[in-house]
Amino acid sequence: MRAKIKNIKDLLIDPRFINYTIIVTIFLVMFSLIQFELVNRYIYNLLVMVLIMIVMSTSLNIATGFLGELVLGHAGFMGIGAYTAAIIGIALRPYIEVDLLLFVVSAIAAMILAGTAGLLVGTPALRLRGDYLGIMTLGFGEIVRNLITNLDTVTNGAQGLAGIPRIMTFPIAFWTTVLIVTTIFLFMNSRHGRAILSIREDEIASESVGINITRYKLLAFVLASMFAGVGGAMFAFKEGFLAPVSFNFLKSVEIFVIVVLGGMGSLSGSIVSSIVLVFLPEYLRDFKEYRYLLYSAILVITMLYRPKGLMGTKEFDFTQLKNKITTFTKRLKARFSKGSDR
């Protein structure tokens, strides 16, 4: 247990405080950059896209990284969330003036619908193992995309749904993302999170110590799909336009790649790799033709030579960084004094 905070000094070295401060600082820096128009529209859009991909990848990480199940249809849940939020957003725009409120209402609806879909697919699907579950979720994703295309009276089909209020500002996106990532983080550090991890490690052993693996698999799966629904809602309000192709198999793979490269089971890994994989292609524009080739090559090479991804299952922590720096300086000092002895 952590020591009680008595004075300012204790507060300053409290890990929670450090992490919160850093989050707020990041926000303030980004926000002022935007306010003083040091960031152009293009970068602004990319920033929001990064946040969306963080929500998508950290949520997929619950099912794939922590639970260890192969899910190849995450874009399907994103699509359900996106279309739900878009349709509700369009309908309610005349009645709700406040952007934040409109987003919250639509995002909750998106979350509920995507979560329900997760429950419906997950209940039977989670009986299957490994590749079969992957294939089943892949099939589900394709069905969702086809349904969106075919139910054109509601979704406007392949032509796409336009006129969605573009209310996804950086602050809304940022704090939504922080809220979701923090929730996932805290959840994974509870007894429920441990139960989920233990299923990834060994299902049979997990059952043998009293974990109801069906319930926890489903819980992880539904949580993942709920947050994917929110990610979809963010996407809808950012783009202002939705088409079924945005939620195809390739999108699922893209999210999956982010999780794998970041490290399955590492939230900070997913965050870093979301940033890299959204920005990198933009800077590789000159190599446009090679871009995806490079992408896929990186994926294969990672699997062959660093199968645990960038971060493995570890979390990056600012407080750890501080510790690392102190040990490093200590070592440096030690070496230095040794040197001067001679």
């Binding site: 260890g68 793979v253 896929s296 090559a297 994926l299």
Partner: peptide, 22 residues
Amino acid sequence: PRISALITAIGMSLFLQHLAQL
């Protein structure tokens, strides 16, 4: 682990698609 091999297969699939495109 099976999942690594499967991811590699997906990566290979994308690689070949874009190789063909190139």
